[in-house]
Structures are given as structure tokens and as C-alpha cells.
């Protein structure tokens, strides 16, 4: 279950990175649609956080340790909102670049989460 979600969040993050990277390339700031996209990815990351905690409470243990797993889940959930906030204060192409970078970070976090859970 958590593995499927990790894959979904990872792919969504990748799509967001490409989308905002395209906006950067076109010299555009983030628009409403981008923020809706960020909200969708954030909701997915929050669902992942909740399901991760539920699995922990059921007694399942990640291979690389619970503390690291929770830290990465929290980081993943905070990543896109943080980047989105920065792009609100930077209404140029560089705001789009920041969200794209944030989405790449989220993608990397998903790869690490997969390792941490599965070993």
C-alpha cells in the first residue's frame, strides 16, 4: 500500500516538476493552475503521511528505522507547500523554478522513502 502511494507521489512530483520547469522555460510565474497542481501533490503527500503513521501504529516497522521514516514523511508533506509559499513571494520565472526544484526534492524523498521502508 505504502509502496504504491510512494510511486504515485513520486510520479505526481515528477509531473509537477516538468510542468513548473516548462513555466520557467516560458519565462512565466506560477499561475492558479500550478497552485491547484501543488495542492493535489500536497494532498497525496499528506495521505502518504497518514497511511505511513497508520502502518506504524499497526506494528509494521520500516527497514531503516522509524525515526528516519517519519522524518522523511514529514519532509515530503512540507516540501511543496514550502516551495509554493516561496513562489507566491517571487512572481517571476524564478518562482516557477523554485517549485520545480521543490518537486524534484519531493521525488528524491520518495526514492529514499522506498528504500527506508523496504530496505
Amino acid at each position: 500500500m505504502i509502496d504504491v502511494l510512494t510511486l504515485v507521489v513520486g510520479l505526481a512530483a515528477l509531473a509537477l516538476a516538468v510542468w513548473c520547469g516548462h513555466a520557467f522555460y516560458r519565462d512565466q510565474s506560477t499561475k492558479d493552475w500550478h497552485f491547484i497542481g501543488m495542492a493535489v501533490v500536497t494532498v497525496l503527500a499528506l495521505v502518504q503521511l497518514v497511511i505511513g503513521v497508520v502502518q506504524l501504529s499497526r506494528g509494521e516497522r520500516p527497514a531503516k528505522g522509524t525515526a528516519i521514516f517519519v522524518a522523511y514523511l514529514l519532509g515530503a508533506a512540507a516540501c511543496i507547500p514550502g516551495a509554493g509559499f516561496v513562489s507566491l513571494t517571487e512572481r517571476t520565472r524564478w518562482g516557477s523554478a523554485t517549485v520545480a526544484a521543490g518537486a524534484v526534492v519531493l521525488g528524491v524523498l520518495q526514492v529514499r522513502l522506498y528504500d527506508i521502508w523496504g530496505g
Binding site: 514550502g82 516551495a83 516561496v86 517571487e90 517571476t92 524564478w94 523554478a97 523554485t98 526544484a101 521543490g102
Partner: peptide, 13 residues
């Protein structure tokens, strides 16, 4: 500002 904002974000991360 500008490219600097991206740097702030990456350094923050």
C-alpha cells in the same frame, strides 16, 4: 530575489 530566491530555497532545504 530572482535567481537568489531559488538559491534561498535550495540552501534552506
Amino acid at each position: 530575489r530572482g535567481p537568489g530566491r531559488l538559491l534561498v530555497w535550495v540552501y534552506g532545504v
